[in-house]
Design a protein around this nucleic acid. Sequence first.
RNA 1: GGUCGGAUGGCCGAGAGGCGAGGCUCAGGACUGCAAAUCCUGCUACACGGGUUCAAAUCCCGUUCCGACCUCCA
Length: 469
Amino acid sequence: MNTGLFIFDTKERELKEVCAKNGFEVQIYCCGPTVYRDAHVGNLRTFLLGDLITRTLVFSGIAANLIQNITDVGHMGEDFDGNEVGEDKMLAQSKAESVDPFDIARKYEASFHRDLANLNVTPAANYPRASETIPLMLELISNLIKSDHAYVGSDGCVYFAANSFEGYGDISGNRLDALKPGHRYEYVDDGAKRFHADWALWKAAENRTQMIWDSPWGPGFPGWHIECSAMSLHFLDGNVDLHLGGIDLRFPHHENERAQSNSAAGYEVVENWVHGEHLLFEGRKMSKSAGNVVLLTDVIAKGLDPLSLRLCFLENRYRSQMDLTWDSLKAANTTLERWRGKYQNWKDSGDLDQKFLADFAEGSIADIKNDLDTPRALQQLRKLEKDELISGATKAACFEVMDQIFGLELLKGQAPKAELTPELAQLLDDRRVARLEKDFAKSDLLRDQLATLGILVKDTPAGQEWNWN
RNA sequence: GGUCGGAUGGCCGAGAGGCGAGGCUCAGGACUGCAAAUCCUGCUACACGGGUUCAAAUCCCGUUCCGACCUCCA
């Protein structure tokens, strides 16, 4: 079943129409978070991609089935210099916080869901946890061993034989022979792997005591890549119409996943590999060492609507690197407030032009269906905002329709203001009276005083208005 | 070294060979007692060198510079 939605496929390097192979529902898999810390705004950009696609499909009357995994085991870490620490990220954080690793996982999983809710992301159909799908992985690994795509190394770990999969490198453009030198890493031949590019499907526990499971190859834990193969094959019935993830996952994660899935299934499992570009913050890549990691809670703490972040993301194409700044977030926040205010004024004014509404929606959806060109769709909205020939009711209706996809809560009225203290109320009233008496020296003084107390006053033809700063 | 992207005005960013996107900032104006908000006006750019074309930001060739990934990452 065709959808009319075209998205750039990393493997074919061209736009491809999204299709529901099973004829009734688009099957989507999105690589989820490793829950050893809070997701930063860069992570959230990728997660928004899944929401944007699902909303677009659902808007067009097409069902979507989105699965997003929760990695709570097996993701190995490194230190900031890029040296392998060789420790599971979950266990490292568990030590750092002196908390059980599973409690760490649940804690950050909860904050992941809280962030998604704040960004108005429609929840996925299922968020399977790696730690709860071990049997699926064991079965997959067994199959890969049976078909000679995997082998047990001398160290008791199970490895995938990279050379056994013919199309290795098609997504990233990397070739196995070109990878050999290991530009950044000295390849250490420990003898366990048969080939330097092979990777672990199952790691032997050795000294590890937490987060380990029994397996036909002894106690241990799964490699990171196998989890996505196992889950996507199982939860999406062996067919993935769209596979989403950050650009950095293109290699090696998705390359390895594809090798595993295709080798097990015997056919091309993923129809379309979609990658979201990275986000910079104030011109630099976000990293702990650079100290510029920004969380959604930081945005909220600055008094900005979390949906300001959503608007910033929508104003940039998912496939281009974008530089997020506090200025752009503030600008987005202002825009949101303006739109919400205007919507309230528009909705009951004038006649609704059904024809215009239908044309407008069709045009905007066409932009979005063209490789998710939300910047262009938003530009249409800005143009409409300024168009004096269109009635308020029609503008409001257009905003309503488009907000089903943008998810910016444009229909929301002003948030109720927090209660004034009697002192502040008195100051405001004093100023009102001073203005009535045309004692402007006094009213200006009171305005300054209120400003230092966190209240912004402005005068309109209807009188004095105030807002918390 | 390999692979993949970029280079557009003060800043950020769209651009479909030919009537200059848009946003932010800034400056001037309107409205205000003054501010604020709002509205109006202004600020004309495509890295460099060739080529194709009646016409190039857009297509082709070359050059320079920048970024991402290369067995960590969204």
